[in-house]
């Protein structure tokens, strides 16, 4: 994928297919440690112990439309190609956690890209799922929790045009502020 935020979107589609209702996204951008870390944790149905090694095989998939499942193997390859690591931990009926780290200055490390676009797509496209998003750069962070937002909305759907606009502006503004002051 051209951007790491597209891998995030892709992995979360897996979480959603697993029936997750709460998904945590965490991005740590640490120039001092030369590390970029991405963690995605969901409360979906989890992966069977016997399948955990198989999920990284592009010819293994639990879906029925195709016989290929590329997402995790591509993400793992991206991390390892950049001197990083990739891990999957999962417990049946509790959830799955994916952690990918990258050497931040590695020449092959794709940019994080439009993570605001990724987050907005996920939040509005999946109104019955909650997300938390934490993005840290050099000690500052941007945090969003859709549970807080939905609590304030008291039933107004996230797909309401005014809410879509608010979400888009809030997320983009928050991330611009974060990257401008710490970029």
């Amino acid at each position: 994928m051209r951007e790491l935020s597209l891998h995030i979107l892709d992995v979360i589609e897996n979480s959603l297919a697993a029936g997750a209702t709460l998904i945590h996204i965490s991005i740590v951008d640490d120039a001092d440690q030369n590390m970029l870390g991405i963690t995605i944790k969901d409360n979906g149905k989890g992966i069977e112990k016997s399948s955990i090694k198989k999920v990284l095989d592009p010819f293994f998939t639990t879906r029925t439309t195709r016989r290929i499942g590329l997402g995790l193997s591509l993400f793992r390859d991206a991390a390892e190609r950049c001197g990083g690591r990739f891990s999957i931990t999962s417990k049946k009926n509790e959830g799955t956690e994916i952690v990918a780290t990258f050497e931040r200055d590695h020449i092959d490390r794709a940019p994080l890209g439009d993570s605001a676009g990724t987050l907005l797509s996920l939040v509005v496209g999946n109104p019955f799922v909650d997300f938390t998003y934490t993005h840290e750069i050099a000690g500052s962070s941007f945090f969003l929790d859709t549970r807080q937002i939905k609590k304030e909305l008291e039933g107004v759907p996230v797909s309401h045009p005014d809410v879509v606009k608010w979400l888009g502006d809030t997320i983009r503004q928050g991330l611009v502020t974060l990257t401008d002051t710490n970029g």
């Binding site: 994928m1 597209l6 979107l9 892709d10 589609e13 590329l70 997402g71 439009d114 676009g117 496209g125």
Partner: peptide, 16 residues
């Protein structure tokens, strides 16, 4: 449609 194929091809831009 946001399978790995769709995402790689630009589905997020359509969504946005």
């Amino acid at each position: 449609h946001m399978g790995t194929c769709g995402i790689a091809a630009g589905a997020r831009e359509c969504m946005n």
